[in-house]
């Protein structure tokens, strides 16, 4: 991977990061979209799809309601994809299930995203005061422009989170890989199953539907038994 690839990753991180809150909200920021898009632009869409499928359900139940800031699964997905493609290209990491390991490493690093997102929203508070001052001075257009400056704050937060994940992951993976490569490869089937199960469980716990476990259990049981019969 070249510096250009890292920059492409950063560009997607910023665009998808803005899509989370500040602009458009077409949900390009969802891991199932952002990760395959990153992978496709970096030449390995399949790695991105694997990362996206692992991360998508995990924080889906955390709603961006009011002042609540959900964990930054967008940057986890983009960062893990960049890391997976980079490490899959290194010969001494060839045996590693890269999307899985990189997602496991990126997840705790992604906690930084909430901190930077919160900081961006605090900085935006200054824009509000700036707009109030502009209105008091009769500068209406300046008040409108203050609003757009917030895009810069959110973009900076997304970029710094991406740096933390990709930078931190690049430092951690060579240290951890010798110890975890073999066990993770052996357990990869079960680990890949663990992600959607945790995501589903969290969604079940938060979805606020009566008899949610009954619906899930009936659907799971009947589908599994059908697959067993066929």
């Amino acid at each position: 991977m070249s510096w250009t690839d890292y920059l492409i990753g950063a560009l997607i991180a910023v665009v998808a990061g803005l899509d989370r809150t500040a602009a458009f909200q077409f949900m390009v920021s969802r891991p199932i979209v952002a990760a395959p898009l990153t992978g496709w632009l970096l030449g390995d869409a399949s790695a991105g799809l694997q990362v996206g499928a692992l991360v998508e359900l995990l924080w889906l139940g955390r709603l961006p309601v009011g002042a609540a800031i959900p964990p930054d699964d967008t940057q986890v997905a983009v960062g893990a994809t960049v890391l997976a493609i980079f490490f899959a290209g290194l010969t001494h990491f060839a045996a590693l299930p890269a999307p899985l390991v990189c997602t496991l490493v990126a997840m705790p690093l992604g906690k930084a995203g909430q901190f930077f997102d919160r900081a961006a929203r605090h900085w935006n508070g200054r824009l509000l005061h700036r707009a109030q001052q502009a209105l008091a001075a009769g500068k209406l257009e300046e008040a409108e422009r203050s609003h757009l400056l917030g895009i810069g704050h959110f973009a900076a937060a997304a970029f710094v989170t991406y740096l933390v994940i990709v930078g931190g992951g690049s430092l951690l993976l060579p240290i951890l890989a010798p110890y975890f490569a073999s066990p993770v490869a052996e357990a990869s089937t079960w680990l890949k199953l663990a992600f959607p199960l945790v995501g589903t469980a969290v969604l079940l716990g938060t979805i606020n539907v009566s008899r949610s476990l009954t619906l899930f259990g009936a659907s799971f049981g009947s589908a599994l038994l059908l697959l067993w019969l066929v």
Binding site: L193, I207, S219, A223
Partner: peptide
């Protein structure tokens, strides 16, 4: 969604 997730988890488990 819950019904779909039940089916999806069953398929992945199988």
């Amino acid at each position: 969604t819950l019904v779909l997730l039940g089916g999806l988890c069953a398929y992945l488990t199988y």
